[in-house]
Simulated assay, not measured.
Amino acid sequence: MAKRYTDEFRRDAVRIAISSGLTRPQVSSDLGVGLSTLNKWVQKHQHEDLMSGPHDDVEKENTRLRKELRLVREEREVLKKAAIFFAGQSR
């Protein structure tokens, strides 16, 4: 008798197969799913929005990255001004 998987397990397997950087044979082996089964799931669900629903960790990471980007931009502006200042002194 064929093993039944929940929709959540299938969605997670597809997400892992697409975004983990692992090969599909590795993912199928790690999850204990046949390679052809995983490929069918990916083919069936490739057009679905896998990021729908609540993802608090994604929001936290986005917030962290926005802060880091702001800091890097500020540092870049300071370095630009310093480069102009020191270029003027070397003349």
Score class of each variant (00 low, 15 high):
85 F>L: 00
75 E>T: 08
15 R>L: 02
42 V>Q: 02
77 E>S: 15
33 V>M: 07
39 N>A: 08
44 K>L: 14
8 E>Q: 00
26 Q>V: 13
13 A>D: 12
75 E>G: 05
46 Q>C: 04
83 A>W: 06
3 K>M: 03
21 G>Q: 12
48 E>R: 05
22 L>G: 08
48 E>V: 04
78 V>G: 05
86 F>V: 01
28 S>H: 15
2 A>D: 06
35 L>W: 13
67 K>W: 03
4 R>E: 14
32 G>I: 11
62 N>Y: 11
15 R>S: 15
38 L>S: 13
16 I>C: 14
80 K>H: 11
45 H>Q: 03
7 D>H: 10
15 R>D: 14
1 M>Q: 11
45 H>G: 08
49 D>I: 06
32 G>K: 10
46 Q>S: 12
13 A>L: 00
46 Q>F: 12
71 L>S: 01
63 T>S: 09
15 R>P: 02
56 D>C: 10
65 L>F: 01
53 G>F: 08
79 L>R: 09
7 D>M: 05
5 Y>N: 15
51 M>Y: 09
14 V>D: 06
1 M>N: 03
80 K>Y: 10
79 L>W: 15
33 V>Y: 14
74 E>R: 04
13 A>T: 15
43 Q>E: 03
7 D>G: 03
48 E>W: 00
63 T>F: 14
32 G>V: 04
52 S>A: 10
28 S>T: 05
31 L>A: 14
68 E>V: 09
62 N>W: 05
67 K>E: 08
13 A>R: 00
7 D>C: 11
38 L>A: 06
22 L>I: 01
67 K>F: 04
55 H>V: 07
36 S>C: 09
24 R>L: 13
74 E>Q: 03
68 E>F: 11
81 K>T: 05
12 D>S: 15
62 N>P: 01
9 F>N: 07
65 L>E: 03
25 P>L: 15
48 E>C: 03
17 A>W: 11
53 G>E: 03
47 H>W: 13
38 L>F: 14
8 E>M: 10
50 L>D: 04
9 F>V: 14
18 I>D: 05
27 V>M: 14
68 E>G: 13
24 R>D: 11
67 K>V: 07
46 Q>N: 10
29 S>M: 04
32 G>W: 11
36 S>W: 12
57 D>T: 06
21 G>C: 03
2 A>K: 05
52 S>R: 02
4 R>P: 10
51 M>A: 00
77 E>W: 01
16 I>E: 15
71 L>I: 07
85 F>S: 03
34 G>E: 15
15 R>A: 13
75 E>R: 07
64 R>P: 00
68 E>C: 07
84 I>K: 10
70 R>P: 01
77 E>M: 13
69 L>P: 14
41 W>R: 00
34 G>F: 14
9 F>C: 08
24 R>S: 05
55 H>T: 12
71 L>K: 09
79 L>S: 11
18 I>Q: 08
46 Q>E: 05
4 R>W: 04
54 P>Y: 09
75 E>P: 00
36 S>I: 12
19 S>R: 13
30 D>M: 06
67 K>Q: 12
30 D>P: 01
